[in-house]
Amino acid sequence: MGKGKFITRRILQMLLSYFIILTMLFFVFRLALPDPTAALVMEGLSAEEQAMVRARFGLDQPLLGQYFTYLTNFVQGELGLSFHYRAPVFPIILDRLYNTLALMIPAIIVSYLLGPLLGVFLSWKRGSRSEFAGIIGGLVLRSAPLFWTGMIFIMVFGIWFNIFPTSGMRTLPYEAAYFFDKIFTLDYLWHLFLPMMTIAIYYLGLPMLIMRNTMLEVMGEDFIELCQAKGLSERRIMYHHVARNALLPVVTQAAITIGLAVGGQVVVEVVFSWPGLGREIVQAVRTSDFPMAQGSFMMMSGLVLIMNFLADVIYSYLDPRVVYKGGKE
């Protein structure tokens, strides 16, 4: 099986998964709420007018008909009207998606730059007290819930020292013609720092410990002994020979983490009032904004699927055995 075929198969798999998630979402929403217009239809409308509203929203059709309308609308990027914003859901969600990525990607990059470096350091100092402290530290960082770390950060750096803003993406009011206008500013970096560090610290422990473990394994291999025999400096051996060979599992883990980070992001966005997808979906629950909640969920699970797919593709490049073995067993 070639690489192209492997990727095609994975894409098809991903689309199928997404299709099933969309289907489940539709039926869960419709079965739990047989009449979504109840929230929308004002009291005092006559039966005929109510029927008209239902017809307008296509709710007089059989469930299966509604389901096909739902799918075709989805393909056309038509996710309905938000009850809360009284505007189409899709453009709003798209905007929130960019904001989410503008926080998530820097955070993951920072944690996967720092994590492996610390991991190399720990394996270097193997058996020492700083290694022990590092391992315990990694465990503790991973155990502290994201939202709590965020709150502590806000309290310490935002309130006590008052050196970082505590909420939002930019100081209000601001004007940004388009998205990149918004994020290519110092003000944005200023706002980004605390939420980014909150996420980065949480995800840093895992690559650090993985890196350490793999490093220790690689160090036991024969070619390292050869390097030592050649008289290379320890630093050179560590960074050039061991680390390079130990990076693979970290890269895999990074790809998996990005998928999971989409969910973990929600609380951080809530704590820091970051106008992203996660905050939007929590707000949608508070305002009973069903189209918004549905749309945000679609977007998030789509994001997760794409991340998982990218993880597999990256892995197939790094470790070609996956492709030739058929991706399984």
Binding site: I21, L260, G263, V267, M300, S301, V304
Partner: peptide, 8 residues
């Protein structure tokens, strides 16, 4: 795996 926990 396609569904994040918190939004779910």
């Amino acid at each position: 795996y396609g569904m994040p926990l918190e939004p779910f």
